[in-house]
């Protein structure tokens, strides 16, 4: 006698409630994918600079528009998140901090670092440039 019920082989996303650790894990991948798009802009910016003053100014005003600034802000946060969480991952690879308590503490630290470094970078950038 067989049953036709298609049971999942193991509990998956629709079973588990999101936790700090699982959300941070998928965000690591999401920020990485988002940062990949930034490499295209980085390449474009370098080529524009190599081509001369005019194309560089064009690139700079594109990046300085509200949409450009929004993207740059997003990339800054994604970079600092991915960087901080990447260090957390490297510690795990070394076999350190894999227990639940430490991984939660380190996870919260990653969020803090991402926000503080993003804020610091943009505060410094605007105060050095002298434009509000």
């Amino acid at each position: 006698m067989t049953t036709n019920v298609k049971r999942p082989l193991s509990p998956h996303l629709q079973i588990y409630r999101p936790q700090l650790t699982s959300v941070m894990s998928i965000l690591h991948r999401a920020t990485g994918a988002f940062l990949s798009l930034g490499t295209i802009v980085l390449a474009y910016w370098l080529i524009a600079a190599a081509n001369g003053v005019e194309t560089y100014q064009q690139a700079q005003s594109l990046l300085g528009s509200w949409f450009g600034l929004l993207l740059l802000f997003g990339w800054t946060f994604a970079l600092f998140y991915h960087l901080s969480n990447g260090i957390r991952h490297l510690f795990w690879d070394a076999g350190l901090g894999v227990d639940i308590k430490t991984s939660y503490t380190a996870g919260k630290l990653v969020w803090m670092m991402a926000f503080v470094l993003t804020g610091l970078a943009w505060f410094l950038a605007f105060s050095i440039k002298g434009v509000g």
Binding site: A49, Q57, L124, A125, I128, K129
Partner: peptide
């Protein structure tokens, strides 16, 4: 990031 914030961000093409 430090280079962008401290050196590139404020200057023009010649500076870069």
């Amino acid at each position: 990031v430090v280079s962008i914030v401290f050196f590139i961000n404020k200057g023009d093409h010649a500076n870069l």
